[in-house]
């Protein structure tokens, strides 16, 4: 047992360290800042973990609660009581102030990143088939005719660099030079969660219908992606999908279930 610090203080220090780690070490030294919602979730978990640890055994729990009880009751802890008695209202005041003060930030929004496609896959008004069943008409060339497949991928590259590159970037990582002006940001195809999780028909749908074609669940128009069926042929869209998977090395899903 550590004699110098009480169990409560040690737990408090651990809690603060974790918070500092999440808030400033991850979000600054190591990587980019985490959203407040994620930090809140992790911090609540740590709090839970600490409470679990101290409360399993009666003795330890009493030891943990002792400083709190002492602060509330003991005569020699008067200074501490007064300090807390002023600090807590001040903190609450600051919290209230932060709530009341004007904020120009738009509110947090949850965006459905992977909306569900419609049952029928369409190019313009032409029905191609059921989204679930449509396959890339040139995918079979990968086995049957490598040269032709390469040509399709090459054509996809052309289409990509003529149309998509400005936003999705020359490394397909969503870092195109227009990207930073857009909200939501363009998709990053190098992310392992994008290409492997969807069938090619899904990508066809997203490319052909663009932001305006998003379903209600994903708020239509909430994306700067143009309606590419107005500009590209069916073949060009399939080609660019081949290019996406060839360039990144990720294979679109063929048949299975989706992830979060």
């Amino acid at each position: 047992m550590n004699k110098r610090l009480s169990l409560f203080t040690r737990c408090l220090i651990l809690f603060l360290l974790v918070w500092l780690f999440l808030r400033f070490f991850i979000g600054g030294v190591w990587s980019v800042p985490l959203p407040a919602s994620v930090i809140a979730m992790y911090v609540v978990l740590i709090l839970l973990a600490i409470l679990v640890h101290v409360s399993v055994e009666d003795d330890r729990f009493r030891e943990f609660l002792r400083p709190i009880k002492e602060t509330l009751i003991d005569d020699d802890k008067k200074i501490r009581r007064i300090a807390l008695g002023t600090l807590i209202p001040l903190v609450l005041l600051g919290f209230t102030f932060s709530k009341v003060s004007t904020k120009a930030d738009p509110p947090a929004a949850l965006r459905t990143a992977h909306p569900a496609p419609p049952a029928e896959l369409k190019y313009g008004d032409k029905v191609i088939g059921l989204t679930q069943e449509v396959e890339n008409p040139f995918r079979h060339l990968e086995k049957d005719d490598k040269e032709a497949f390469k040509a399709h991928a090459e054509n996809g590259r052309r289409v990509y660099y003529q149309n998509c590159f400005y936003c999705h970037g020359d490394d397909l990582d969503g870092e195109g030079h227009f990207a930073h002006g857009l909200n939501p940001l363009p998709a990053n195809f190098q992310d392992p969660g994008i290409i492997p999780n969807f069938q090619e028909s899904f990508f066809f749908w997203r490319i052909s219908k663009g932001g305006p074609g998003l379903p209600p669940a994903a708020t239509p128009w909430d994306s700067a992606m143009p309606v590419w069926e107005d500009h590209l042929t069916e073949e060009e869209i399939w080609d660019v999908i081949i290019f996406l998977s060839e360039y990144t090395g990720y294979k679109p899903r063929t048949f299975g279930e989706a992830d979060h």
Partner: peptide, 23 residues
């Protein structure tokens, strides 16, 4: 940890994308 994080546009800009590079 969700795939789609709840965040304000400002936080998203600070993260440089909809997905955090670690989390």
């Amino acid at each position: 940890t969700p795939r789609t994080l709840i965040m304000s546009p400002k936080e998203m800009a600070a993260m440089g994308g909809t997905n955090h590079p670690l989390v």
